[in-house]
Simulated assay, not measured.
Amino acid sequence: MTGTTQDTTAPHAVDPARTGPLDAPPATGREDLPAVRRDAATALRALIEAAQDLDDDSLGSPSSLDGWTVGHVLSHVAMVGEALARQAELAAQGETAEVYEGGAEGRAAGIEAGAHRTRDEHVAALTAAGTRLEAAWSLTDSTGWDAPVTYREGTVADVLDCWWREVRIHATDLGEVSAAQRLTPSQTWGLAFTDHLLDFLSPRLPGPVVTVRHEDGARSVVGPEGVWPAVENTSTDDGLTTVAGSAADVAAWLAGRATATDPTAHRHGETVDLPTLGPWPSGVPVRR
């Protein structure tokens, strides 16, 4: 995944009581880390349970990702789990290393090799990754979540966030398998996760928009610099596009995934196209 150049234009008409993302507290001040850890573990259990029901035909069937089978997705999740656990383990020792041994070529080769595992081998690989991650998180509880890592020039807390995204998002990428196992964004992405994706993926937007969440009408300004609650009439006063939909559908659209119902976009009372999204932001340093 590649980085993108961030627009430094600040959103307009936001709640003045809020500070921007650069004023966020350090990782050790994040009270949500235990909940993130639990939800990531829940997502992995659901993915493992889905894998246990697969046969060879299902493993070789197309995923939602171009050129990848279901087996490729499962291989990638297990491999990224091992890689991120390694990031946390090394950080606890005051050391760092590239995310994947062998870099991009090592990553691609590992995914391809693992894609052809049997069902039981996929289940074993995913289970082993989960066990290693849990041990790494427990170690981090003692050594500190703000230890530096090479992943996005961030901290171990950012590594946990990455794992949360990887396992939650890729569980929805199994094509027909995800639909059959009820592993879709609308069925598995809670509000905490969709709020996280809104912030993480906001650099993909070319400029600020106002999002309106169907569940409760919550309005936010979302743009390259982050997310803020929107004051009343923000889109009308500032000529911003309003993107409306369920929390899961808006997050899935930003993530480039299929939505249950496409979000709608309006500006000045007229229906317009949804904004064109830029690259995935994983290749850029963590935004504080």
Rank of each mutant, 00 (worst) to 15 (best):
P279I: 11
S58R: 14
P203Y: 07
P21Q: 09
A247W: 06
A252I: 12
G110H: 01
D15C: 08
N233V: 10
L47M: 13
P148V: 10
R204F: 05
R86C: 07
H72Q: 00
R287W: 12
P279Y: 10
R45Y: 09
D66C: 07
R30Y: 09
D56W: 10
A35I: 13
G256D: 12
L126M: 02
A260P: 06
T150R: 14
T236L: 15
R165C: 07
W189Y: 05
S75G: 10
T69P: 00
A248I: 05
R182E: 15
G245H: 01
Q187L: 15
D262R: 15
G278A: 13
A10T: 14
W163T: 00
D15H: 08
T259D: 05
A88Y: 03
A260M: 11
G245C: 09
R86Y: 09
T155A: 11
V210Q: 11
L54C: 00
D56S: 13
A265K: 08
C162P: 00
P34H: 02
L44V: 01
R18G: 12
S75P: 05
G29S: 11
G29T: 09
A24F: 12
G278F: 10
S64C: 11
S138W: 09
S75E: 06
V243A: 01
A46E: 14
D57V: 14
V167T: 13
Q181E: 15
S142D: 15
R117N: 14
L65K: 02
